[in-house]
Design a protein around this nucleic acid. Structure first.
Lengths: 342, 342
DNA sequence: ATAATTTAAGCAATCGATTGCAGGTTTGAA
DNA sequence: TTCAAACCTGCAATCGATTGCTTAAATTAT
């Protein structure tokens, strides 16, 4: 690579026989520069193909106009939609986004966070990995004076702005729907209980059963079934029980629900008549399976926009300190064929 | 937000009564520092929760260890997989990724590129938007001495490193497969011919027909059918013809093929017996539709890794200038139910 | 015509880390 | 014992943009 020398404000200054200060002021549209010279500077800058060195600028200003986002997986529909939502707002505010994925690894999550702190981003938005129970790296973000916003999967004990789904309520409604459809033995595939979202979903499940006086059967609750493969495995076990369930709620994801559907089909269970299936997240594919899968939409893009707006609101009133608070978005049950037997 | 003062090397230096130079050297593990002091410095740095200011460091070094990626859409399977592939390599090399999406808008693509130039990224990886025919913004990247790597959708006239699919060959094989299955009137949904990939796919289509002496019928070639909606619309038109096609190749994407499938099904055409459907990109959902959709896999993650490796190879031999060249990855036909009628 | 004010532009320090050069000390070889 | 090599460490400049302060010039008010 040719080490092409880039144009700096000094080059422009030299060419016009003025100082870099004036060039800088002109480029920042300060009104402490003569209109004529300003025009001349702008014109020369364009001619020389000048591009501001943001490194220098940011170093001086102590602000990078950059938001870092850490998600478990970029290519999971929910997360990519949240990112799209964030981007919509940040783009209009001329902010940059640095996107990192933790791949569900705690160790990598920490590395990402540290990289973002090093980068002096103005804000970090995170949904934590499945792994890990220690969140001192998040505290560290705060200690460095960086605004932290958690979403979806949040560490309760770290007090920050949080944007979450009302998982419990959504699950409650979903299970109620299953009961309405006449399902009586409803199994739950649960995610790691270290994560708030999975605890809340379980809670919604239990409350719905309780309300309808349906007994909670331990063998119908399967831990850690949060991938397609684990969902499939769990289903194989469940459907081989002497008294198998007549519905399975894959509380962790639609991927898990997909695993359920495939195993159920291959084992000859008719969906939805003999087995109801309910997923979570409204991945696009849930519409395409046969039968299509009932699921819960999280308004992911809207969540992203909410997150970004929250940041800009807060950063505007610098004087007052940030009050940790939680914004809860109510998800929506999307009823499809896999649970419609009436 | 509290404007917490961050620890700098000067703070460490002051505390230990040495100079910042030594601290810097110790932190960079230079061997020009006494082992004992080095240890002491590292210990103190950890105690003070020191985080290197990459802005300052990069400014000084003129290198950011950051690669910028510009894609039309982050949440399209092909692109998110390429990104995942890139990330795998860059992560291991301790490089950062800044990901931008153009949303298929030329104007936004230019803004992204300029933002990345401002950020002084070391390399820009891009797959261009559907919109646009002027690629001076890419030339501009090169003029700023930034390594540019194009992939998939490339601007032929800009000489850079390129990583592409052999679209023509892949299409040729796909169409040959259709012919083998006995399809005779094969329609083509083509993408904007401004993009190389769509031109190549059309070329493969034409060559395959020619080779088998099948006449090319103009009314079976539909321009600009590159979204699900446009694919659906095109299909409605095609299947209403006096002599409708018996197969449709959605050369633009699986989304388009999905539109074809939905319309065909709703119009009562049996797939694959009465109508064969072929997509492009091997989106995960193609496996889930009924019938499942035959498509072409592009080894997207592998492409991503190839791109990143290419960059690191090139950056290692700084002395020699980069020779523009093209690496072609051969995609693979995935035969599924939607074209299997034998 | 002179003082007061406004406007324009320069000077120089600053952000934090890096690094070539130089000075000083220690070690080892002759 | 003397000199060279090896090893540490400090000094000061540098990366490029920004900005408070100052000075000079131009404009307005008195």
């Amino acid at each position: 690579m040719k080490p092409k020398k880039r144009t700096t404000i000094y080059d422009i200054a030299e060419k016009l026989n003025i100082t870099a200060s004036s060039v800088s002021r002109a480029l920042n549209n300060s009104n402490h520069v003569n209109e004529e010279t300003k025009k001349l500077i702008l014109k020369t800058a364009a001619e020389l193909n000048y591009k501001r060195n943001v490194l220098a600028s940011n170093l001086r200003k102590g602000q990078t106009k950059t938001i870092g986002v850490v998600v478990p997986r970029i290519n999971q529909n929910f997360f990519s939609n949240v990112i799209a939502g964030i981007e919509e707002t940040t783009y209009s505010k001329n902010f940059n986004l640095i996107i990192c994925q933790s791949n569900e690894s705690h160790e990598k999550e920490i590395k990402c966070i540290n990289a973002l702190i090093n980068q002096h981003v103005d804000c970090i938005v995170i949904s934590v990995a499945i792994e890990g129970t220690d969140y001192s790296h998040l505290q560290n973000v705060i200690d460095h004076g960086i605004q932290l916003i958690q979403f979806d999967r949040v560490a309760d004990e770290i007090e920050t702005l949080k944007v979450i789904n009302d998982n419990e309520q959504a699950t409650f409604e979903a299970i109620t729907h299953l009961i309405d459809q006449g399902y009586k033995r409803i199994a739950l595939l649960e995610g790691p209980q270290t994560l708030n979202i999975f605890r809340q979903r379980k809670e919604g499940y239990l409350k719905a059963l309780n309300k309808h006086k349906i007994p909670v059967i331990d063998e119908l609750i399967i831990e850690n079934a949060w991938t397609k493969e684990l969902g499939a495995e769990a289903t194989r076990k469940l459907l081989s029980l002497p008294e198998p369930p007549d519905a399975i709620f894959a509380s962790t994801s639609d991927f898990s629900a997909l695993g359920v559907l495939e195993v159920a089909t291959s084992m000859g269970f008719k969906v939805p008549t003999e087995l109801g299936i309910l997923g979570y997240a409204n991945e696009p594919f849930t519409e395409l399976t046969s039968p299509s899968i009932t699921t819960i939409d999280q308004f992911s893009q809207y969540m992203g926009k909410t997150i970004a707006n929250l940041y800009f609101q807060e950063s505007e009133n610098k004087d007052t300190t940030v009050v940790p608070r939680t914004i809860s978005v109510k998800p929506k049950l999307i009823v499809r064929a896999s649970t419609s037997r009436k």
